[in-house]
């Protein structure tokens, strides 16, 4: 330590930079191959997986755009609704679990956490039938028969996504809100602020970084989901872009170039979101509140 302190900080950090640089290189190669492959046709893909495409197939991007553009708006609608819904219900619950004392608090909290442990495939079929038999929707009567329920609507995506996504959100929001200084809430309470006001005017604004974290993670898990949209949506005009992408995987052949081009296009909104919220996202995750 004392010996190295005599050197300049930049020099001392050099081995670390090298190490991290190497790690980054390895972590980024999927990105690199994603982009590389997106410019190949199947011939180039199979003949030279690791090499540069010559000539680059710009047409892949046209094909990919044609495949996903009709559905992109649906994905945006579903994802934005899911994020807003998740943030809303999760922050309300997290606030109560973090700052209120009430009978059954622990039990109810663990009842939520336990849901993280249920395998998703387990409920796929029963959840589908339940969407179909959802009472009073899509022509159904009170007993859930006669119509198509929530199927073929974006509700069939958003509501289960919010219900499922809030679990992890509540988990991380709760520990963040619990770590906020009690004095702030105490002072506002003395001023006569209601619980709703404490929540809306103190807890939510102070939790902005962690809310950004939750928003980004919810977006990541919603945006590319495939099986559930595949089975609950049958109308063309309602489908999401992961379904558009899946057409490049045929029964007999897969066209990898346009598929990868589609993944690149589909991840552009995610990248933008990342860039816009990066500071908050990282601040939220590194707030130190995330531990068991």
């Amino acid at each position: 330590m004392s010996r190295s302190a005599s050197r300049s900080p930049a020099m001392r950090d050099l081995p670390i930079h090298l190490g991290l640089g190497l790690l980054l290189l390895l972590t980024f190669y999927p990105f690199y191959f994603l982009i590389l492959t997106s410019f190949k046709d199947n011939t180039q893909f199979f003949h030279d997986f690791w090499g540069f495409p010559s000539p680059p197939q710009w047409d892949n991007y046209r094909q990919a755009w044609e495949a996903i553009s009709p559905y992109a708006i649906n994905s945006v609608v579903v994802t934005v609704s899911t994020v807003i819904g998740t943030l809303f219900v999760a922050s309300l619950s997290a606030y109560a679990f973090a700052r209120h004392r009430f009978p059954g608090r622990e039990t109810l909290f663990y009842a939520i956490l336990a849901l993280m442990m249920v395998p998703g495939v387990l409920t796929l079929v029963s959840a589908f039938m339940w969407m179909k038999q959802f009472p009073l929707t899509g022509g159904n009567d009170l007993w859930g028969s006669g119509g198509t329920g929530l199927l073929n609507t974006h509700w069939a995506l958003v509501l289960p996504y919010v219900a499922g996504g809030q679990v992890f959100a509540i988990f991380i929001l709760r520990s963040f809100i619990a770590a906020l200084p009690e004095e702030l809430f105490e002072a506002a309470r003395l001023d006569g602020a209601s619980e709703w006001r404490l929540f809306g005017a103190i807890a939510v604004p102070l939790s902005r970084p962690i809310l950004a974290t939750v928003a980004v993670m919810t977006t990541l898990s919603t945006w590319n989901d495939y099986v559930w949209p595949l089975i609950v949506l049958s109308e063309e005009s309602k489908k999401t872009l992961s379904i558009g992408l899946a057409f490049f995987r045929g029964a007999y052949q897969t066209t990898y170039g346009p598929l990868m081009a589609g993944y690149v296009l589909a991840s552009i909104p995610l990248l933008l979101l990342f860039l816009l919220t990066m500071r908050s996202f990282i601040a939220g995750l590194t707030s130190g509140a995330l531990k068991a």
Binding site: F88, V89, L92, S93, V118, L159, P160, V162, A163, Q166
Partner: peptide, 10 residues
């Protein structure tokens, strides 16, 4: 709200 959603969809 959380529990209504959880009850219905989880």
């Amino acid at each position: 709200p959380s529990f209504i959603l959880l009850g219905l969809f989880s």
